[in-house]
């Protein structure tokens, strides 16, 4: 994939308020975090102090703090607190780089690459999250497997298709060459049995895709 585009990074459900998670998209290390008011943030996963991953740290209200030395950054990515120098008024130039982000279709999306102006992502239909699944196979082979399904269409990083267990909306996150994460959602109201059947479908897809690599 080249140029600017919206890429799904997580199922919105899996980033609970007050938590963070590291991820990789097209080789870039990214932290996805949600403040205690429920707003999602997507940043470069690197503290400007010593390069520690911000995703190893912890969320405090609308700030995220680095695990190493506790440097705290506000929702704008600007450093507000350096615990080793409590008297210091922190200069506003110490910042973590932010990605544009939005939530729709049960997923958290970011505009890639860093600094991209991706325009607005059109709102997706309401959906319920099923699971995220990482597959050790190339983007093209996974995309081709999805396109083999009934009524499959891929637009940008979103695949829609009709599985034997109902319609699926699948966010496709390219991790690096040879690894892809699929964020799978389905229509609201799906039963527990249906959700488990979709998991089985996804795990079978993973097994098949990885077998092709091994062959």
């Amino acid at each position: 994939m080249t140029g600017t585009q919206w890429v799904p990074l997580a199922l919105a459900r899996d980033i609970t308020p007050g938590t963070s998670a590291g991820t990789v998209a097209e080789g870039a290390e990214i932290v996805v975090w949600r403040d205690t008011d429920g707003r999602a943030h997507v940043w470069e996963d690197r503290c400007p102090h010593r390069g520690m991953k911000m995703s190893f740290g912890f969320v405090r209200g609308d700030h995220i703090a680095c695990l190493y030395h506790g440097w705290e950054f506000d929702e704008g990515g600007t450093c507000r607190k350096i615990p080793a120098h409590p008297e210091l008024e922190v200069p506003g130039s110490i910042c973590v780089a932010r990605y544009g982000c939005t939530e729709t279709g049960a997923m958290i999306w970011a505009a890639l690459p860093l600094g991209a102006e991706a325009g607005e992502l059109p709102a997706l239909p309401d959906a319920v999250p099923v699971r995220s699944i990482t597959i050790e196979a190339g983007l093209i082979s996974v995309a081709n497997m999805l396109l083999n399904e009934e009524n499959a269409v891929i637009e940008g990083a979103l695949a829609t298709l009709d599985s034997a267990h109902g319609p699926l909306a699948i966010g496709v996150q390219p991790i690096r060459p040879g690894a892809v994460t699929l964020h799978i959602a389905t229509r609201p109201g799906a039963s527990t049995e249906t959700l488990l059947a979709i998991c089985d479908w996804a795990e079978t897809l993973r097994r098949t895709a990885e077998k092709e690599i091994a062959a």
Binding site: A10, D14, T19, A21, G22, R131, T134
Partner: peptide, 18 residues
């Protein structure tokens, strides 16, 4: 992570660990 294995691919385990 002590041996270089990140938690990215394990969202269900991350929530369970919490």
């Amino acid at each position: 992570r002590d041996h270089g294995l990140d938690h990215d691919a394990f969202p269900a385990l991350r929530l369970w660990a919490r």
